[in-house]
Design a protein around this nucleic acid. Structure first.
Lengths: 223, 223
DNA sequence: AATTATTATGACCCATGGGTCATTTTATTG
DNA sequence: CAATAAAATGACCCATGGGTCATAATAATT
């Protein structure tokens, strides 16, 4: 039963605990995101983060070395997660260009309105001078993939003659711009009279491809 | 020579000094703008502002009651000044819609690149949660006038048949969006590979109105 | 239950920087 | 030049909040 105790110095045992800590970490991350979104980096207080996570201040420092690490860590997690399902979307042949673009961009628009992505985007923008790497990461993981899809679609559009210019191939960003504007408009410049992002995007397509006749636009644009 | 001194209590004299103080004030405003642009509101130090203005810290407080007043005051001045020459621009009949838009928006694009307006815009964006009034002021004084001009032009375009939709009438913002994106792109998301704002705007018009055939586009879009 | 490594705690330390004000400097007037 | 009011100064005060660490609570192992 009892094996010979090796003379004493056996370091007894070591237990790396388990799920509890990751649970705590998640609470901290979630709390930190909320606090940073509300106050921005400089005005966010570590005590507030701890309080909202239901832990003491010192605990936060067991998971993140300092405030900057907390900010970067939290936002990296938020940025990295999403949009994965979109990146692989490839242009299905046979679909009209307008419809293809619509079906690619619409989910992004919809999700933008009902998630934290818009506020996160504005936060990254606000703190970009202190955390330039985050802004670049956001571009690489969010903007660039979308732009690349648009570019491919545009390229096909040029080949099929649906587009008379390669302008959209050279500047796929043009397809993203209206949404970017709407996010800032609704969150910053005129929250009282928010733009209907979906309607605006449909309008954009109307201008580019002519008034839509099929059934893929919104049911009936608002007043 | 000497008139009878009125028994003493004559308040002697009072001199509201003159140009020197406004000069000092201007130095403070200019310094503050630079510091705020570099560090943002929270990280800007009043001592830095004073130092860069060539005055002592206490002096700043003779012109602005506190840090927030300084920030608001400085940015109000910056926002309020410009664009006056654009607001009155009215659509000249007989010009093609595309050319009219081009000639309205191009000066804005050009000035954006060589002035502090782009960084100021980004600063206002960054501090918009602490100073929402500034963002709204910026919209009212900068965005709204431009949007109104676009709307008028678009309205005329609908009437002359140059536009087949009223989409641009309903969302004149669509014309501003590409520039907004470019400002953020070049300042935040990819300063290493800045977008050519002028070329991108031309591309946008190409998409909306078809490839330009006249001579109003840029000489030759870059590679 | 006893042991001990791991995790959590929150009182505490202290650098930072906003804001003050008694004093000094400047400049205007008689 | 003397008098004095306005402007400028910078040493100082002190609230704030990031970060630390001795101690306590927790839970895995025997």
């Amino acid at each position: 039963m009892n094996e010979p105790k090796p003379i004493e110095s056996k370091p007894r045992t070591r237990r790396p605990s388990v799920a509890k800590t990751t649970q705590t970490r998640q609470a901290i991350v979630a709390a930190a995101l909320d606090v940073f979104l509300e106050r921005g980096f400089s005005d966010a207080r570590m005590e507030d983060v701890a309080a909202r996570a239901g832990v003491a201040k010192g605990t936060v420092y067991r998971y993140f070395t300092d405030k900057e690490a907390l900010f970067e860590g939290v936002l990296r997690e938020v940025i990295a997660v999403p949009l994965a399902h979109l990146t692989l979307m490839s242009p299905e042949p046979g679909v009209r260009l307008r419809d293809a673009i619509w079906s690619v961009v619409l989910p992004i628009v919809r999700d933008m309105e009902r998630s934290k992505r818009a506020p996160v985007f504005r936060l990254i923008l606000a703190e970009s001078s202190r955390f330039p790497a985050l802004a670049i990461m956001f571009r690489e993981l969010v903007f660039d993939p979308i732009a690349e899809i648009i570019r491919r679609l545009a390229q096909r559009g040029v080949e099929t003659g649906e587009l008379t210019t390669d302008a959209l191939v050279r500047f796929p960003h043009l397809m993203i711009a209206p949404n970017m504007l709407a996010v800032l408009w609704n969150g910053v410049f005129d929250p009282e009279h928010p733009l209907d992002m979906e309607a605006m995007f449909a309008a954009h397509l109307d201008i580019m491809f002519g008034k839509d006749e099929s059934g893929c636009g919104p049911p009936a644009p608002q007043s």
